[in-house]
C-alpha cells in the first residue's frame, strides 16, 4: 500500500537521458522516439532554425500536456482508490480532449465516493443492528435460563403438592372407615333399643296384670320404653348424618382425583418448558447463546 502511495503522481522514465536535447531535426526525432517509449522527461532545446524551433516548441507543449495528464490521472485515480476523495483532477490548464478525460475521471471519482459513502453508511447501520441483536440475544439467553430454572422449581413445588394430596386422600379414606364403623355401632344401638322397647312393653303388661303391687314396676317399665324410643330416634339422626358424611367424603375423594390429574398436567407442562428454555440441546438458552456468538463473529 505504501509502495502504491509512494508512486502516486510519479511518472516512470523508461530511459532517463538529458531533459532537453540540443540540435536540429535529429534531436526532435530523438525526443519523439523517447516520448513514444513512455519517457516524458524528454524535451527539445531551442534551435537557431526558426522552423525547427517552432516544431520543437510545439512538441514540448504536447509533451507538457500529456505529462500533466498522465501524472494527474494516475494520482487522482490512486487517491480515489485509497479513499482520498478530496483529491480531484484539476481540470484547469488542460485543453480539449485532455479536459474531457479529466472530467470523466472526476465523474468516476464522484461515483466511487458515493459508493464509498453508501458502503460506510451500510456498515454503520449493520454495526448498530448487530449490536442490538447481540444485546437481544443476551437478554433472551438470560431470560431463558431464568425461565428454565423457574420451570424446574415449579416441578419441585408440583411434586410436593402431589405428596400432600396423597396424604389428604389417606385422611379421607380414614374418615370413610370411621363413618362405616359409626354406622355399624348405630345399627347395633338401634337393635338394642328395639329389643329394650319390646322388653319394656312386656314388663308394662306384666305390671298391669300384677295389679296394685305391679304399679310402681309399671312406671319404671314405661320410663324404660320412653328411653328406648329416644335412643332409637337419636340413632336414626346419627345414621342420617353418617350417610351424609360418607356422601361428602366420596365427593371430596372424586374432587381430589380431579386436582391430582390437573397437577399431573402442570407437571408435564413444566417439564416441557424446562427442556425448551434451558441449556439442553435445542434449548432456547443454548440457541440464544450460540446466536450471540455467531453475531459476534459476524460483527468482527
Amino acid at each position: 500500500m505504501r509502495q502504491l502511495l509512494r508512486r502516486s503522481g510519479t511518472v516512470t522514465v523508461v530511459d532517463p537521458g538529458p531533459a532537453t536535447s540540443t540540435g536540429g531535426l535529429d534531436a526532435i526525432v530523438d525526443v519523439l522516439h523517447r516520448a513514444a517509449a513512455g519517457d516524458f522527461e524528454a524535451r527539445t532545446a531551442e534551435s537557431d532554425d526558426p522552423a525547427l524551433d517552432e516544431a520543437g516548441r510545439a512538441l514540448n507543449s504536447l509533451l507538457d500536456v500529456v505529462d500533466a495528464f498522465v501524472r494527474e490521472s494516475g494520482a487522482a485515480l490512486a487517491a480515489s482508490a485509497r479513499g482520498r476523495f478530496h483529491r480531484t483532477f484539476v481540470e484547469r490548464g488542460l485543453p480539449g480532449a485532455y479536459r474531457d478525460g479529466a472530467r470523466r475521471i472526476n465523474d468516476a471519482r464522484d461515483l466511487l465516493r458515493a459508493a464509498d459513502e453508501a458502503a460506510t453508511e451500510e456498515a454503520e447501520v449493520r454495526s448498530v443492528i448487530v449490536a442490538q441483536a447481540v444485546e437481544v440475544s443476551q437478554h433472551v439467553a438470560a431470560a431463558s435460563t431464568e425461565l428454565g430454572a423457574s420451570a424446574q422449581s415449579l416441578r419441585g413445588t408440583v411434586s410436593a403438592g402431589v405428596d400432600e394430596l396423597g396424604t389428604t386422600v389417606d385422611l379421607v379414606h380414614r374418615l370413610e372407615d370411621a363413618s362405616t364403623r359409626i354406622d355399624e355401632a348405630v345399627t347395633l344401638i338401634l337393635e338394642v333399643a328395639s329389643r329394650t322397647r319390646l322388653l319394656a312393653l312386656n314388663a308394662t303388661i306384666e305390671a298391669a296384670r300384677a295389679g296394685e303391687h305391679g304399679k310402681a314396676f309399671g312406671v319404671v317399665a314405661d320410663e324404660v320404653r320412653q328411653l328406648s324410643d329416644r335412643v332409637a330416634a337419636s340413632s336414626a339422626d346419627i345414621s342420617a348424618q353418617v350417610d351424609e358424611a360418607q356422601a361428602v367424603s366420596r365427593e371430596v375423594s372424586t374432587s381430589i382425583s380431579r386436582v391430582a390429574a390437573l397437577i399431573a398436567e402442570i407437571d408435564a407442562e413444566a417439564t416441557g418448558v424446562s427442556s425448551a428454555a434451558g441449556h439442553a440441546e435445542g434449548g432456547l438458552a443454548r440457541m440464544a447463546e450460540s446466536l450471540r456468538a455467531d453475531i459476534g463473529r459476524f460483527a468482527e
Binding site: 503522481g9 511518472v11 516512470t12 532517463p16 522527461e41
Partner: peptide, 14 residues
C-alpha cells in the same frame, strides 16, 4: 502540483 519522476527501476531522477 509537484511530483517526483522515477526511472524504470523506480529510482527518483528528478
Amino acid at each position: 502540483h509537484v511530483t517526483p519522476s522515477t526511472d524504470a527501476h523506480g529510482v527518483p531522477v528528478g
